[in-house]
Simulated scan of single mutants.
Amino acid sequence: MKIGRPCAVAILALAAFAPIAHAEDDARAILKSMSDYLTKQQTFSATFNTDIEVVTPDLQKIQFASSGQVAVSRPNKVHAARTGGFADVEMIFDGKQVTIHSKDAKSFAQIEAPGTIDELIVKLESDGHALPGADLLLSNVYDALNAGVVDAKHIGTGVIGGVECEHLAFRNADTDWQLWVRTGAEPIPCKYVITSKAVAAAPQYTLIINSWSGEVKDDFSFAPPSDSKRVDAKAMPHIDDIPEGASE
């Protein structure tokens, strides 16, 4: 039987991929190393880019891009900001309350939420606010990410923004996800991709860390701009990366 070029290339690719199926221990060890490093960082700040895909009713994939920055002071302070084509928002948590500020809509809401960053993330997600990538801010990243993993692979190395990284791939029941972790003494996450297998056409969420620092220049307080008004949390305008009705 004659094998066509595309088929032959695919077979060669599968053959090259086969050995990494035995790298599960390496993948979990690198993930644990990254988690341990992040947990030890009592303060850090980073800048990032995100891309989130939606699938239209006619199965066209559309990506929505945004950029932002985050500052963290463990155990109970975080300031995250994100600017995209459809929202310019920030969230400030001082350990007592969380403020959601829509800069473009000139409005903000404040919710009492005493506790830690971990407790805040759990509360927001239980209230229906999806926070992809927020698990990287938890006090034990390994437990959060490793929960439900049914397959783990160490693919090899890759380069993100000129930085050499270990490339890891994991599978859960409903998602596939990948991590690129910086090699060397500072194993920080450089890229994080989540693929939603339970959704038609498997849309992806991509987070790329552009810069990272152990220093934080933020007092985690919120001073309302003179032209912004306080509103009830339920009255906050649409603040997602994706415009309303984009996937309907």
Rank of each mutant, 00 (worst) to 15 (best):
G128M: 01
G128S: 02
G128W: 03
G128Q: 04
G128R: 06
H129P: 00
H129W: 12
H129S: 01
H129L: 13
A130V: 07
A130W: 04
A130T: 09
L131D: 07
L131C: 05
L131E: 07
L131P: 13
L131F: 15
L131R: 10
P132V: 01
P132C: 02
P132Y: 02
P132E: 05
P132I: 01
P132G: 08
G133I: 04
G133W: 07
G133T: 03
G133D: 11
G133C: 13
G133R: 11
A134C: 11
A134L: 14
A134D: 03
A134T: 06
A134P: 15
A134K: 12
A134Q: 14
D135R: 05
D135L: 01
D135Y: 11
D135K: 02
L136T: 01
L136P: 10
L136F: 15
L136Q: 12
L136W: 13
L137K: 08
L137A: 06
L137S: 07
L137P: 12
L137D: 05
L138Y: 13
L138I: 00
L138W: 04
S139T: 15
S139N: 13
N140W: 11
N140Y: 06
N140F: 03
N140Q: 10
V141C: 05
V141M: 01
V141A: 07
Y142S: 14
Y142N: 11
Y142W: 12
Y142L: 10
D143Y: 00
D143T: 02
A144C: 00
A144E: 14
A144T: 14
A144G: 00
A144R: 09
A144V: 09
A144Q: 12
L145Q: 13
L145G: 04
L145V: 08
N146D: 15
N146G: 06
N146R: 07
N146E: 11
N146S: 15
N146H: 14
A147V: 04
A147Q: 15
A147R: 14
A147P: 01
A147M: 05
G148I: 03
G148Y: 02
G148D: 09
G148K: 03
V149L: 09
V149H: 00
V149F: 03
V149W: 04
V149S: 11
V150T: 12
V150N: 12
V150S: 10
D151P: 00
D151E: 14
D151H: 09
A152P: 00
A152R: 03
A152E: 03
A152M: 10
A152I: 12
K153Y: 05
K153E: 00
K153N: 02
K153S: 00
H154A: 03
H154M: 05
H154K: 10
H154C: 01
H154N: 04
I155M: 03
I155D: 04
I155N: 10
I155G: 04
I155H: 07
G156T: 02
G156F: 07
T157C: 09
T157K: 15
T157Q: 15
G158K: 08
G158I: 01
G158D: 15
G158E: 11
G158N: 08
V159D: 13
V159W: 00
I160T: 04
I160D: 04
G161H: 07
G161N: 11
G161F: 13
G161A: 05
G161M: 06
G162F: 14
G162I: 10
G162E: 09
G162N: 07
V163Y: 01
V163D: 06
E164M: 06
E164P: 14
C165H: 06
C165Q: 08
C165F: 04
C165L: 02
C165Y: 04
